[in-house]
Design a protein around this nucleic acid. Structure first.
Lengths: 131, 131
DNA sequence: CGGAATCCAACATGATACTG
DNA sequence: CAGTATCATGTTGGATTCCG
């Protein structure tokens, strides 16, 4: 065997260590705050565009549309258009989306649990600056 | 009770729905690809700056330094300086960092599992463009 | 070696306005 | 209502350079 190759005998595509892998590309797409927030809130169930925008405070129309399209392309979100007037468009998580939602839920829980810890850590860090 | 308030009876600080909450601020910091990759690779154990940079393909010196500092401020990463020459600096996950690592691991696993699914979804999406 | 600062190009984002 | 395009602006990120 080689010197220290325990980690990956993965196909190059799936290897996160490689900057040009598909896995990295997916990480770059999905591991961002807007995508996570959309997935988290969509986890509550099917929602309309405007509902989502109301739920996720501070997200702009543009960012919501853009990230929804990205998630749709990657097959995490399904878009359903109702031929009514005014138009009604529903968004829901696919199976892949729901699987990722479990991860995002984990991060939400982590955030709650370590909120105080992080706050304190920041304070300590700030106060020992310019010693 | 109100009309539809199942979700959060959380303190405002912990409410991800609010753009100005501390939870959101943490999400914005941590939910990005570089932070996730650093946490994932640091999960293998204590590592030096240059080792990390070698492991994480495509990360620049600047991004690594910047994100390490951010993670240190938030108390996810601990930095140890050895008074040798040349200087040696080790990075390791704290308890909070290891807890988040479980989440990131979940995302890595998710990526592997749905890689093909996502690839196919992208192809379908692309090929039904300009119909 | 690790870190910080600078410069600058590229990109992300928000506001606005327009379409179906 | 949902979606897109455009534009102005701020932020990100890479390359480079210098410090300890």
């Amino acid at each position: 065997m080689g010197t220290r190759r325990e980690i990956s005998e993965l196909p190059p595509e799936a290897d996160l260590a490689r900057a040009d892998s598909l896995a990295r590309e997916i990480f770059s797409d999905v591991a961002n705050k807007w995508a996570f927030l959309i997935i988290e809130f969509l986890g509550q169930g099917m929602m309309r565009f405007s509902e989502l925008q109301r739920e996720i405070g501070g997200i702009s129309h543009k960012m919501l549309a853009q990230n929804l399209r990205m998630l749709e392309q990657n097959g995490l979100v399904e878009r359903t258009v109702h031929a009514t007037v005014p138009p009604r468009v529903d968004y829901a998580l696919t199976e892949a989306g729901q699987a990722l939602r479990a991860v995002v839920d984990g991060m939400c829980g982590w955030t709650q649990r370590y909120l105080g810890h992080i706050e304190e850590s920041r304070r300590r860090f700030a106060s020992r600056e310019r010693p």
